[in-house]
Amino acid sequence: MLAQQLVNGVLLGAVYALFALGFTLMFGVLRVINLTYGFYFSAGALLALWMARQGAPIWLALPLAALGAGCVAVVLDWVLLTRLRRIQAPELSSLMVTLGGVLALYSALTSWLGPDIRRLPPDLVAADAFHIGEVRVTAAQLLILGATTLLVAALLALMRGTRLGLAIRAMAEKPDAAQLMGIDTGRAAALVSFISGCLAGAGGVLIGLNFNAIHPYMGEAMMLRGFVVIIVGGLGDIRGALLAGLALGVIEVMTAGYVSSGLKEAVAFLILVAVLWTRPSGLFGRAVLRRA
């Protein structure tokens, strides 16, 4: 049982990490508490659902849905936040505008598509479980694990090894200085939105596939855990998000498996509070950043 529980924990952790990747990037670089992130997640899943119903195979639906969610993210960022950036509005008004935005977007999506849960066509990914000893893993779960690993590697390569990554990191450190150094911060912001949107969309498809439940509010339900992961991992820290996600998944599963399932949810937040009380900028965060 312990082996299976550990696998359960790692898989849940991969789900959390997958959700958090784009979130931490957006949060860390653009320095805005952007509540629309969960919407890109839902949008990706719903786009993939629509394509799969038209007969598209998963290897086509997944990247297309991710790109689609990325475009949604760029448009929303432009509509909601460009004006506020230009007039250098207080940072909390960005939070407020995305709050109004998600309320409108989720409600519009719900009244358009209906609030029901939908499922992807059952034969999209083989449903059989693989046995390794007494441990069982499904194809969708392996897909999540693989995709998370791949995306983390790709993101790290982008951030560390390209000029673009350098520009994004410069922007995360000091936006004003970055602009003076000739970085087009407007374009970089759009790009970061696009990448985060793609990551969210891909996450939505894979997680929707794994739990087989796609509905307009699915992103909203992940937001709170997402916050825990990116804060514990350190804002903008991709490796931190991965580690914090995995740790959270394993701890939650172990708590439910060996202590009490009533504590499963509380334990995430107890850890969060305990981490922050001892390390005020997250477990893997570097310095206290003064940001509202």
Binding site: M1, Q4, Q5, N8, G9, L11, L12, V15, I207, F211, A213, A221, E252, V253, M254, T255, A256, G257, S261, K264, E265
Partner: peptide, 13 residues
């Protein structure tokens, strides 16, 4: 939780 999507820990137990 009614919004949970993962029940693997409880079911394994």
């Amino acid at each position: 939780g009614s919004k949970d999507t993962d029940f693997s820990a409880q079911l394994t137990k």
